[in-house]
Simulated scan of single mutants.
Amino acid sequence: MHNTVLLSEIFGWMSLINIGLLSLATLALIWMGERITSVHSKFFNVQAHQLKIMYMNYLAQYKLLVFVFNLVPYIVLKIVY
């Protein structure tokens, strides 16, 4: 029983940290999108319109990974125990 409580706390903190990082990355792209795009397009030699698609793919994949590997196990542990 003690292990499941500890595991639940670990998944809870992992979820909180990863959702915070996801929110920070989203806000950075909203507020400083043009500046970030110009730097990345020069650095990686990618066109700006392609970068915006790449940013959205990154955010979508990161959100999916956070939900599947952090949030869902946390919710399951809270429901079961």
Rank of each mutant, 00 (worst) to 15 (best):
H2R: 14
V39I: 14
F69N: 05
Y55C: 01
L7Q: 10
M1P: 06
E34V: 08
E9T: 14
V80H: 07
Y58G: 02
V80M: 10
S15F: 09
V5Y: 14
I30H: 05
F43Y: 10
Y74E: 09
A60K: 05
S15C: 07
P73S: 04
L51K: 05
S15M: 06
I10Y: 14
V5R: 15
Y58A: 11
S15N: 03
I36H: 04
N45H: 08
I36G: 04
L29E: 09
S8C: 15
M14H: 02
G12T: 00
Y62D: 03
V68E: 00
M54R: 15
N70T: 07
M56A: 15
L59V: 00
M56F: 12
G33K: 01
M14T: 02
Q61I: 11
V72D: 02
H2T: 12
L7K: 11
F11M: 06
L21W: 11
V76R: 10
Y58D: 03
L21E: 08
K63L: 12
L77S: 04
A48C: 09
L71E: 04
V66F: 05
I36A: 09
I36P: 03
M54N: 12
L59I: 04
F44H: 06
V80N: 06
Y81M: 12
I19H: 00
W13M: 11
K63N: 07
Y55L: 01
F69W: 03
T4V: 05
Y81N: 15
S23C: 10
F67W: 11
Q50I: 10
A28C: 12
I53D: 04
G33V: 00
V68A: 13
I53C: 00
F44W: 07
I36N: 03
L59H: 01
K52A: 09
I19T: 01
S41P: 02
P73I: 02
W13Y: 13
V68W: 03
S8R: 13
